[in-house]
Amino acid sequence: MREMTAEKNHRSVEVSVVIPVFNEEDNIEPLVDELQTVLDKVGKSYEILLIDDCSSDDSFPVMKKLRQTRPFLRILRHRVNAGQSAGQATGFTYASGEIIITMDADQQNDPADIPALLDSLKGEVAAVCGIRRKRMDSLVKRYSSKIANAYRNFITGDSITDAGCTYRAIRRNALGELPVFNGMHRFLPTLLRLQGYQVVEIPVNHRPRTRGYTKYGIGNRLWRGILDCFAMRWLRKRAVPGNRVERESQS
């Protein structure tokens, strides 16, 4: 069970941006500044949630300093390091927006793509997932990601182009029954489809990391990812639709 310190927000907003953070002290302020510029132009009320996953650098002090001059910023902090999936799950719990945007804290996701993500969230679409075009990572990471995507699709029976891209826009009402587990963030599109929701993909920009270092590699996710794929295959046969209520009955 993850523990955290946080404050509840009762302010109603249209868009919540959820960003798990672990040791990204140099990326937080420029990312928040970029997001503010883009979101101000979108024309929707918004909040930005920074979920500190028990960082050991100065990420948390940086967040607190930014909070003093940015009323749209909310800070949540895990008391134990719980991982990226837990960070997203915490954001889903505390976010107030009807639409939730998830992204990484390393500045490789481009805030300029937010309008396109929101524009694609139309009709019955419950989630829009990014596909990183011209991915700015090492050759090893790019090829291992292609192999991992092909493998997960083969095992799960799904078709997700870039499961490792966590840049997404999701309707809040689609997240109510989402199972939370370590690795959930990589399978979120598949989980939503298993519950009967419509998921689409669009190309998004991908930028090189210029500050800090990556926390995830082949060694710390290979075997866990393989096991998770078989868990998804089992869940495919057992999943209960999440949008099963046609309408509220009147009495």
Rank of each mutant, 00 (worst) to 15 (best):
M1N: 12
M1E: 13
M1C: 08
M4S: 12
E7P: 01
K8E: 15
K8Q: 14
K8R: 14
N9T: 14
H10V: 11
H10E: 15
I19Y: 01
N23A: 10
D26V: 03
N27S: 15
E29V: 11
P30H: 07
V32T: 03
V32G: 00
Q36C: 02
T37E: 13
L39D: 03
D40N: 15
G43R: 03
S45K: 15
L49P: 02
L50E: 05
C54A: 11
S56Q: 11
D57Y: 08
S59H: 05
S59E: 03
P61M: 07
V62A: 06
V62T: 12
M63L: 10
K64Q: 13
K65S: 14
L66M: 15
R67I: 06
T69C: 05
R70I: 01
F72W: 02
L73M: 02
R74Q: 12
I75Q: 04
H78Y: 07
V80W: 05
S85F: 07
A86E: 10
G87Y: 03
T90P: 00
T93L: 12
Y94L: 13
S96F: 02
S96E: 12
G97C: 08
I100A: 03
D106C: 00
Q108E: 12
D110M: 02
P111K: 04
L117Y: 00
D119Y: 04
L121D: 04
K122V: 14
K122H: 11
G123S: 05
G123K: 05
A126G: 10
V128A: 05
V128N: 03
G130Q: 03
I131H: 01
I131K: 10
K134T: 04
R135G: 02
S138N: 03
V140S: 11
S144E: 04
S145P: 01
I147C: 07
A150L: 10
T156M: 00
D158R: 10
S159K: 13
G164E: 00
C165I: 02
C165M: 02
Y167K: 09
R171P: 06
R172K: 15
G176M: 13
E177P: 00
L178E: 03
P179I: 13
G183H: 10
M184R: 08
F187Y: 15
L188P: 00
P189G: 03
L191K: 09
L194K: 04
G196N: 00
G196Q: 00
Q198K: 15
V199Y: 01
V199E: 00
I202A: 07
N205D: 13
R211G: 01
G212R: 06
G212V: 09
G217R: 07
G217C: 15
G219W: 09
N220H: 07
W223C: 05
R224I: 10
F230Y: 15
R233T: 10
W234T: 11
W234I: 13
W234L: 12
R236N: 09
R236M: 08
K237L: 13
G242R: 02
R247S: 12
E248H: 06
E248P: 01
S249P: 01
S251A: 10
